[in-house]
Design a protein around this nucleic acid. Structure first.
Lengths: 109, 109
DNA sequence: ACAGTATATGTCGGCATTGACATATTTGCA
DNA sequence: TGCAAATATGTCAATGCCGACATATACTGT
């Protein structure tokens, strides 16, 4: 029956679509996570390099010590925005940020 | 009087400190804004290059067409997280993302 | 071992960002 | 021109992320 076949095809499409979609999504998610990890690592390196305490950095970017700790601990409540702001505030050069991305590429691919 | 001098010095420090702080903050803010603009531009380029409509891209990243439009319009309600997720979902390579940062460096420095 | 400093962890009220939706406007093509 | 697809704009309830604070734990020199 026409409707049956259609239903089956749609179901198949739906399954495949979802599987691909799922895989793609987890890949994208993985890339984002890897990127965040690289940037987090860069934040800590940059902060230590400039001999800033977490309190120092927090003051520079008008945040709090606990937020900095959470950034460096990879706490899920920390956004990419905050990580990058910390990176900039810590005195990281644009080259440093690029380097973080490069590191990310090596890991991710 | 000792306390007067101290008070004046503190006041001066406070003023200078705030001025520097303000300048530094706006510089950091400027770098972040420039970075966002570069990434936004990269999103649109990447999406067009892959011949995706805003709806297509929205579905890929489980967002909505209006969000994509807002991303590309530089709407203030859009986070860096969302921009980068769009960039990744649009099929941009890590090299593309790096390129956006490089472009940002040229503009910012 | 102790004190002082740095970092980690948990919590919370409040503001920012979200996807979804409706609708307006623009674009491109027959 | 006029139609259809794409994009833009405005709004809102729900969720996410924020700084701040309290407090715990880990360092570091004495």
């Amino acid at each position: 029956m026409k409707t049956d076949k259609l239903a089956r095809l749609q179901a198949a499409d739906w399954k495949v679509g979802n599987a691909e979609e799922f895989l793609q999504l987890s890949d994208e998610e993985a890339r984002l996570v890897a990127l965040k990890l690289s940037l987090i690592s860069a934040v800590k390196k940059s902060r230590i390099k400039r001999k800033l305490s977490q309190i120092d950095l927090a003051q520079r970017m008008k945040s709090s010590q606990s937020r900095i700790a959470k950034i460096e601990a990879g706490d899920p409540s920390v956004s990419l925005d905050l990580i990058v702001r910390a990176l900039i505030a810590s005195g990281a050069t644009t080259r440093d940020i690029q380097a973080a991305f490069t590191a990310n590429e090596r890991v991710a691919s």
